[in-house]
Design a binder for these strands. Structure first.
Length: 305
DNA sequence: GGTAGACCTGGACGC
DNA sequence: GCGTCCAGGTCTACC
């Protein structure tokens, strides 16, 4: 297919999205440092030939902006799929990529505040703020559960096992993240055999809820729910506690909570509590003044200053 | 509402 | 090489 160009709300840097957290290290995501190309494998909606799984390559690009635009050059991404797409597939892919890299995200208010804080002053110029998301919220929820109570190496191992064993293959042999239906069909012992440990029933149970329609991912993603209700629904998912819910809220563009994990406690302890152990409430309190931007202020805080 | 213990795995460490 | 301990969030039972 010819590359699609998708403009982003400025400022935009693909590299800032890729570096926003560790998601890019989890398959099916990959990033080629040489060509600065982000790739993943995704499933498109079914057409008359069925649902296709394609590899997608995403690169930063600039184009002349349309006449009448406020800026002469429009920055965004080009998107290339590994197979020719029909119109509906191309439209779906555009929507998926726009979601993944947050093309329409607006950080104007946050940037204005960040410029006044030395630990965040570089954030606007670096176009930080967007956080890389998977094509589906389902994939992000599973991956988030797999970050809990384990090392990062453990998260990579579990995700790699799931994709390798259960992911649908694209034409080039690359595998997508497993569908809710595929994970829902797994037995607990099969999940444990893939290294998920005690998380296996959480992941499988959540997949069964999504596959049956009991858990509506589209509703969570829609932006229609107020943050407290969204958080309540995330916490109702078994395996999702305070940390995981805050992480998922960040991915959903709600920054009211800090994802407090051991790393966060350590940083806050060193920065403001003289190395003494701190509670989750104390970590939250450290960023209280950032109001609805607490999560982003914590996420992009320069701890080395 | 707060707290203790269990959950599972890999890595570090001592022998 | 083997055994032990510990770290990492969440759930459940209990007070």
């Amino acid at each position: 297919m010819n590359p699609l160009f998708l403009p982003a709300r400025p400022p935009f840097r693909l590299r800032a999205v890729v570096d926003s957290h560790g998601w890019v290290e989890l398959p099916p995501f990959a990033f080629d440092e040489g060509t600065e190309t982000l790739t993943t494998v995704t499933r498109l909606p079914a057409n008359r030939d069925g649902a296709r799984v394609v590899t997608v390559a995403i690169r930063e690009a600039s184009r002349e902006a349309p006449k009448g635009a406020q800026v002469g050059i429009s920055t965004g991404v080009t998107v290339t799929a590994g197979s020719p797409l029909d119109k509906a597939e191309a439209r779906a892919l555009r929507e998926q990529v726009a979601w993944m890299v947050g093309l329409d995200r607006d950080f104007t208010t946050f940037y204005a505040l960040a410029r006044e804080e030395p630990h965040l002053a570089k954030v606007p110029a670096q176009a930080k703020g967007r956080i890389l998301r998977a094509p589906t919220l389902f994939e992000d929820v599973v991956k988030t559960i797999l970050t809990t109570n384990t090392s990062w190496a453990g998260t990579i191992r579990m995700t790699t096992n799931l994709v390798g064993a259960l992911g649908e293959e694209a034409r080039n042999g690359a595998r997508a993240f497993p569908t809710p239906e595929r994970l829902a069909a797994l037995s607990e012992s099969e999940g444990r055999a893939l290294g998920l440990g005690y998380r296996a029933p959480y992941v499988i149970g959540m997949a069964q809820q999504v596959a049956s329609g009991d858990l509506d991912m589209a509703a969570l993603r829609s932006g229609a729910l107020p943050t407290p209700e969204l958080r309540r629904r995330l916490l109702a998912i078994k395996g999702v506690g305070a940390y995981a819910a805050a992480s998922l809220l960040m991915l959903l563009g709600r920054y009211d909570f800090v994802p407090v994990d051991a790393w966060a406690r350590q940083r806050v302890s060193r920065a403001w509590y003289d190395g003494e152990p701190v509670t989750a409430a104390e970590v939250e309190a450290a960023f209280e003044r950032w109001g609805p931007w607490r999560g982003l202020a914590y996420w992009f805080w320069d701890w080395e200053m």
